[in-house]
Design a protein around this nucleic acid. Structure first.
Lengths: 209, 209, 209, 209
DNA sequence: CATGAATGAGGTTTCATTCAT
DNA sequence: GATGAATGAAACCTCATTCAT
């Protein structure tokens, strides 16, 4: 039990390195096995195939993020129109929303390498569209919000693709920060800039403020 | 003269299909040749290698976009601080800026499939980082603008990564639109929403308006 | 253990045949695999590449010969001038020298086919210049000898390329014998003729006897 | 007439470079054509195939050498036993023999690059065994000489392969010199050393002097 | 648990050569 | 004389995966 755990970890460590370096498709299982000091048979005892190995590396944060998103958005489902306006006029934004985004951001930063694998090196694996899936979930909420905003502000014409784009922006901002900024102070400052920017963008779209 | 052009076109047509379907790496030259009704030798008479074939499909719009960007940003280099504020307070934004973005958008829409190849299926080819290069060019301008804004508004703290993110947002908005929206009316509306949103985001960041 | 050895041997046997027939470059790995009743993958499990396969066939004698040469020439390093003359005036020649040459000859004859591969079919492989390397080692000794002979016989003018040519002659005589003569008696007689001839050539060059 | 001559020369010049660099087999006709600024079709108008192109580069010296050898050896055919001994006891050697060897050497040096092509880069072409053919011609003469020497010196045991080896040595000495020595003075000195050495070797074999 | 030999299909590329124009 | 498009076979090699042990 301790020994196979060890083997799995050795494989995963080597796999992480190789996948990060070459991306899913160009990564070589042979090299992973060699670097891990393990034979192919051992790898295939623990993992169904290449894709399964890749997924094992990112499964944990994916599931956590997924959980937070679904739970969070389940809460937000029943906001009334007045709430929507109130929430958006409040410079602090929705508390729940902030909490969710913070949780996700925290998870991402706790799993920095895994997330970079997930969002930058997954092409060819079954995870290659995972961002889209997250965006999808988030987008559904924004679509609901947009619908309600439209009721309150019927003169504003909004494309039906706008909500999804907003959702995508939000998620990609976190990823961008994670990939490009190492310094913590800088990360925080960047986060504030982005938050202000995104919020300002939303407000401007509705001609608020 | 007509005949060789024909062969090249047959190859490129088959290549376009295969690359769009499978992406650069998983695409098979054997299949492309077979689908084009041509031998591998013929392909290698016209194209240096797989990468050259891929590039031939996207070279034209890439060069056009590159030209517009470099020319446009050469113009914008010498804006004074007052200009910056003036430009940004003007709801219409910089005329040149708008024109450049419109030209690029137009080129992209005129080469929709090529651009989708370029921005979604290029991993493994020498074009895989082309977006980054475009963002880079644009980012340099935004960095200059940010520097000047800071002089006018010294109390606003701005991350040094902010400019690049803004540049990235702008370009990815066009790509997003192109990939996801087919209807022209909808595209236009989405464009207006995004323009308002991005402009509002920038203003909010500087606490203007 | 017995089985994998078998596969390797099957591959090597087929490879030996193909390389001897066509030479390194024209030999086809496909044909080797087919003749060995094995897939290409199997070949590449045991051998890094074509060159590695070729080398595996000749490595053993090469290393043996190399070992003898380096050991032998290490011994001979410290001959004095008098020794040199003494050795050369003695019709039997240097005992050590004879022993080394005999060992090498013996190894060559024990690995006749491998040596023929090595010296006649290696063009294109990493072994293509192996004769030159052997000659080089031997040549260094002859160069030292020539230097000492010159001290004893300052009137004889000797080209600085002469030593290497003598070394080359000696080694190529063995190869020549091996390639062209099958009969043992004949080989022995030829060996005596060559030995006398080479020795006589050396003496005549120095105007001795 | 002048123009096609030009084209042929351009092709041959490029071919010479490529063959010298890579050897017959690895040389690329494509590259030769490209370097010559000519199309494949043009090459195939003047030359039957790769081999024909290669041969065209070396044909001239080959034929000259062949002519000298056959003519020379036709003369030497009818030497009597006494002549043989006389010739060999005479330190100057056979005058005709010297003249032939000098002519051949001269031709070789006048066609240095062609000869290096012929003797070092011909593997895979129809010229790959040309040295053997020259050796063969020369060897026949030496065989006759050996037969006659045996009649005069019946106690000396000589292998039937000895004559060919002597022939080979003589030709390879010239090639060796040509390939390895550039300086003229050095070449001459080396030639004297080798001549003395070969003659001394032959004499020692017959226990003469 | 783990080995490691073996599969077999597939990858891209290079080549000498041909032939209609 | 010369073009240059096209052939088509073959080249070496890599890969994820399987399975008897």
């Amino acid at each position: 039990m301790s020994k196979n755990k060890e083997t799995v970890l050795k494989i995963q460590k080597a796999a992480m390195k190789e996948f990060l370096e070459k991306g899913f498709m160009k990564a070589s299982l042979r090299k992973i096995c060699h670097d891990a000091g393990v034979t192919t048979g051992a790898l295939y005892f623990f993992f169904k195939d290449k894709d399964d190995l890749f997924c094992s590396l990112v499964r944990e944060p994916v599931e956590k993020i997924y959980k937070i998103m679904t739970e969070h958005y389940a809460l937000e489902t029943d906001i009334s129109e007045e709430d929507v306006l109130a929430v958006l006029k409040n410079p602090e934004g929705s508390l729940e929303d902030q909490k969710a985004m913070l949780s996700i951001t925290k998870i991402m930063y706790e799993n920095r390498d895994k997330i970079m694998l997930l969002f930058g090196k997954a092409q060819g694996s079954s995870m290659e569209n995972i961002v889209d899936k997250f965006v999808e979930i988030s987008a559904k909420q924004y679509e609901k919000m947009v619908e309600k905003m439209k009721l309150a502000l019927p003169d504003i014409k909004i494309s039906k693709h706008y909500a999804r784009w907003v959702a995508k922006q939000q998620i990609e901002a976190v990823i961008y920060s994670m990939i490009n900024i190492k310094d913590e102070k800088e990360t925080e400052l960047f986060g504030l800039n982005v938050a202000a920017s995104l919020r300002g963008g939303w407000m401007a779209t509705w001609k608020l403020q």
